[in-house]
Amino acid sequence: MTTALESPRPRGRSGASGRARLARLAQRQGALVILALVVLVATFTFDSFGTAGNLENIALQASFLAVVALGMTFVIMSGGIDLSVGSVFALGGVLAAWGAGHGTWVALLLPLGVCGLIGLVQGLVIARGGLPPFIVTLAGLLFARGLLLLISDEGATTYKVPPGSAFRELAQGSFLGIGYPVWIVAVAFAAGGLVLHRTSYGSTVLAIGGQEDAADLMGLAVLRTKVIAYTASGMLAGFGGLLMASYTSSGVTILGVGTELEVIAAVVLGGTLLTGGAGTVLGSLVGVLLLQVIRNVINQIGSLDSNWQAVISGTILLVVVTLQRWLATVQRE
């Protein structure tokens, strides 16, 4: 325990023992290793997997969830959870499709505003009221789903994005042969990484998730930080739905059921501790990609029921969470 006292160490990299460092690396990059393995195997097994078209398709399909996962990452890192994102995602899509009939700006700002507001209210209730995030965002889930059904005649009305609307371009257009959503995700995650690791806001999020009492005693803005995290999560979920609406040219009302769980799975797969306090933004992106690749591979095996995707994802999630727990104890040694 006192080794650091006894022997001077170079100040460069981590002073933790080699084993602990390896464990830490595995915890943070474990999903990346699995992803690389799956991609490698799939490329050699299925001719159609490694094609540029298929890979681009995977990236594009993953980008909708990835946007939602970015917000969820911050919430989970702060020690919370946001169950409302699936419903908010769907609501954002419906609002965007409806708004597209009234102009591109309405299609963009309306979902962001409404979904951000839902996040803000949830954040305020959680931070100020001290209520458990699980319950508050469960209420948010029901609220957003209900709102969606209200404005779509119980889901019977599917709003269409008018043909020729510039709003369609957002998700259907491409640059250098790669769809805009993929670029958006790349930029969003780069920004998210900077915020998490290079701003005091990010440090505060990690501090709250790691030891909320300590963060409070250090005089950090605990309440504000939480409110911002939930607001951002709501907005990003709405933005994901908005992208989806642009991509499908319609506000599909049945989307987003169970999406919150898929997103949580992706974030945890990516190495973020479900209890908060540690993780990387990039890991969540890897987690989303991993889930998407598994889905794609199962589609490649034509004979396999597509429901195997959930079974396999669930299994991998369980393995990863068990590993995380184990690695955390190794690190503490």
């Binding site: 325990m1 006192t2 650091a4 006292l5 001077p8 160490r9 170079p10 100040r11 460069g12 990299r13 981590s14 002073g15 933790a16 023992s17 602990a20 830490r24 690190q331 503490r332």
Partner: peptide
């Protein structure tokens, strides 16, 4: 007068540190 690696996670260090 403390000699430690400041980039190490706090939790990996001894309680005294």
């Amino acid at each position: 007068g403390i000699d430690i690696d400041v980039t190490a996670d706090l939790g990996t260090l001894g309680l005294g540190i």
